[in-house]
Nucleic acid binder design. Structure first.
Length: 506
RNA sequence: GGGUCGCUAGCUCAGCGGUAGAGCACUCGGCUUUUAACCGAUUGGUCCUGGGUUCGAAUCCCAGGCGACCCA
């Protein structure tokens, strides 16, 4: 039967409910128990045994097995499933003023309907824990058929486009989003205990900054001005430290106008945190604690499995400088090079590709790191002491010229967190902004202009401060063993289907 | 950006040049211990879209759309 016919049949059933004086769209149901709670509480109840306790449950009908004078429904709520035992005689006794109570179950309910039931506990002869129903109500009539009860919904595109259907029929999807909520809650609890305040900063900004990324552009009508969606929360959180907040953070949505892949969604969630008086060594320890806390909120052990790979999150994690780890993997000692030409020659000999555009030894070092090292960093590893050229907001290293006090955390070959002792010298910061602005002027779409107000804030004085940013989606992917970022974002961005596209105005 | 693969009933899929199919779901009938309930009978199609080749296209070719995976 075609989709429209299935829908028409269900609309007709809704009308029949109205003719019986009932509404297909109820108002309230007093739930006393959830499925998982009952399954747990009566786990030891013997087959065939009954308990004379009245419970009330509600959920979606996921399966119907109807006999002449007996029916079994599988009811699914947020926690799990429980069977409803629907006995014609029992229902006719307890709903004696409703002569159609049992026939209505057979004729006017469908898989997908929301349903409330009150009754007693009974484990059937076949061993299935059930609610032996005394009274019930159809709470919401569903007009759309659910996917195949056995094969479920496997079409990946349809799962993302109609996530609500995915959530109905794939319990592991519900589990991922439950874990995501537990992870973000655990992170906020941890930071709260450490004395951090969450302060919200603007999404709409006159000048995007704080990262190298193309921004989304939007427009404010009344002010008649172009605005950008933020690509980072960094510059505003640091203004708050200037203002006197010693520990601040924000967990929120970031927007980057870039490609879509299994690891990139144009909007994603980051956390950035700033701590006055600390340096990058302090922050590495905090990151360890933060991620361990998040992992413990959803996993039984710190020895975890990600896509067939075993990873041990037990701290402390390895800390090694970028120069040392590159030397370890390639044999190249970047401290020895006294000219860019010499470094390029050696790098080419070591098999590092596409380095013609590198205009400094520091960028070359980073290129060598990305090509030869990143993918090998499976166990959690902090890489430290980055070249200043690729770290425009980080404080110069206290003893290593040309480097900054910065770390990035890698797990399963992916950048998971990025932090540094913050640059507090406003003159130095201005020079670095101006170097960026020059790149922007030269056509680099990921570079941004000088943020004068931020420089002004630095002139009032930023105390010694360490900051850190981390992608929440990638952390959830790691802890929930998800291969694609779309598996941890409830409604990932998709191109509209052809039929949804409005015709171009010409 | 490049390559490979996919798109057929509400769902999961088969069919690969000759009348569009199966299972589940739906509809009708039967059934008081099922849990992929069962038994019987029906119903259900823009074969992603548009061109082309052909006597004939879901099938072959071209272009486009959406998606997946790999590479850069």
């Amino acid at each position: 039967m075609a989709s429209d016919d299935l829908r028409a049949t269900r609309l007709e059933k809704a009308d029949q409910l109205r003719q019986q004086g009932l509404t297909p769209y109820g108002y309230r149901w007093a739930v006393t128990h959830h499925a998982a709670e009952l399954q747990d509480k009566y786990a030891d109840l013997a087959a065939g045994a009954e308990v004379e306790v009245v419970v009330s449950v509600a959920g979606r009908i996921m399966a119907r097995r109807v006999f002449g004078k007996l029916a079994f429904f599988t009811l699914q709520d947020e926690t799990g499933q429980i069977q409803l035992y629907l006995d014609k005689k029992a229902i006719e006794v307890s709903m004696s003023d409703d002569s159609q109570a049992f026939d209505r179950l057979k004729q006017l309910t469908d898989v997908g309907d929301w349903f409330g039931a009150t009754g007693t506990i009974k484990r059937t002869e076949k061993g299935e824990l059930s609610v032996k129903v005394q009274s019930y109500e159809i709470l919401t009539k569903s007009l759309q058929p659910l996917p195949d009860k056995w094969h479920g919904l496997t079409d990946i595109e349809k799962r993302y486009r109609q996530r609500y259907v995915d959530l109905i029929v794939n319990p592991e999807v519900r589990d991922t989003f439950r874990k995501r909520a537990l992870i973000t809650a655990a992170i906020r609890r941890y930071l709260d205990r450490q004395g951090f305040l969450e302060i919200e900063t603007p999404v709409l900004q006159a000048e995007a900054g704080g990262a190298d990324a193309r921004p989304f552009v939007t427009y404010h009508n009344t002010l008649d001005m172009q605005l950008y969606l933020r690509i980072a929360t960094e510059l505003h959180l640091k203004r708050l430290v200037v203002g006197g907040f010693e520990r601040v953070y924000e967990m929120g949505r970031i927007f980057r106008n870039e490609g879509i892949s299994t690891r990139h969604n144009p909007e994603f969630t980051s956390i950035e945190m700033y701590q006055a008086y600390g340096d990058y060594q302090d922050m590495m320890t905090t990151v360890e604690e933060l991620i361990v806390t998040a992992a413990e909120s959803v996993l039984p052990s710190l020895k975890i499995q990600y896509q067939e790979q075993a990873i041990d999150l037990t701290p402390p994690w390895r800390r090694i400088t970028m120069q040392d780890v590159v030397q370890e993997q390639t044999g190249l000692d970047f401290r020895q090079f006294d000219s860019l030409a010499a470094a390029k020659t050696a790098a080419k000999a070591a098999g590092i590709r596409d380095i013609e555009g590198c205009d400094s030894i520091g960028r070359l070092l980073n290129e060598a790191f990305e090509q030869k090292v990143e993918a090998t960093l499976i166990e959690p590893t902090f890489i430290t002491d980055y070249p200043v050229e690729i770290s425009p907001l980080a404080k110069p290293h206290r003893s290593e010229p040309g480097l900054v006090e910065r770390f990035e955390l890698f797990i399963v070959g992916r950048e998971t967190a990025n932090g540094f002792s913050e640059l507090t010298d406003p003159v130095d910061q201005r020079q670095r902004f101006e170097a960026q602005a020059a790149r922007k002027a030269a056509g680099d779409l990921e570079a941004h202009g000088v943020d004068e107000d931020f420089l002004m804030a630095l002139e009032y004085g930023l105390p010694p401060t360490v900051g850190m940013g981390m992608g929440i989606d990638r952390l959830v992917m790691l802890l929930c063993d998800c291969a694609s970022i779309r598996d941890v974002i409830a409604f990932p961005l998709l191109k509209p289907e052809a039929s949804e596209v409005e015709p171009e105005k010409s």
